[in-house]
């Protein structure tokens, strides 16, 4: 649910996804709310994975721990290109707090704060 990581640094990343008609979160040709949230979570995972890759570590499993202040303005249509900005706010132990903004063109489809548990193994 992330096609491309456009850019990534230690603290932020920009990802992209084109909504395919066979995406499991598409309903009536619209990308549904859980789809938007899952795309944000997977963008955050790709971003965390980029960090571990850059440090030469193996990627970890990640789970959503909390979603907060998530606003869904619109449901993108099939074929839309999502561009998502992820910002790492803080990392405490194995929990990362991120802020995300999903855009379709100039329009903001969703904004969200998310806490992700990274599993050590």
């Amino acid at each position: 649910m992330v096609d491309v990581v456009w850019s990534a640094t230690e603290t932020e990343a920009e990802t992209g996804l084109t909504i395919a008609s066979d995406n499991i979160f598409v309903k009536d040709s619209l990308f549904s709310e859980p789809g938007l949230i899952e795309h944000i979570a997977q963008s955050a995972a790709a971003f965390a994975g980029y960090g571990t890759f850059a440090r030469g570590e193996s990627p970890k499993l990640g789970y959503i721990g909390e979603i907060k202040d998530c606003i869904i303005n619109c449901l993108p249509e099939v074929g839309s290109e999502l561009r998502t900005h992820i910002q790492l706010v803080i990392e405490v132990g194995s929990i990362r707090l991120i802020k995300a903004e999903v855009r379709v063109g100039e329009k903001i489809a969703a904004t969200c704060q998310m806490k992700i548990f990274l599993k050590d193994d």
């Binding site: 789970y63 959503i64 721990g65 909390e66 979603i67």
Partner: peptide, 14 residues
């Protein structure tokens, strides 16, 4: 129903 916003959602236990 449509979900317009999520104030808070905690996934406390796997």
């Amino acid at each position: 129903l449509r979900i317009n916003s999520i104030k808070q959602c905690r996934l406390t236990t796997l």
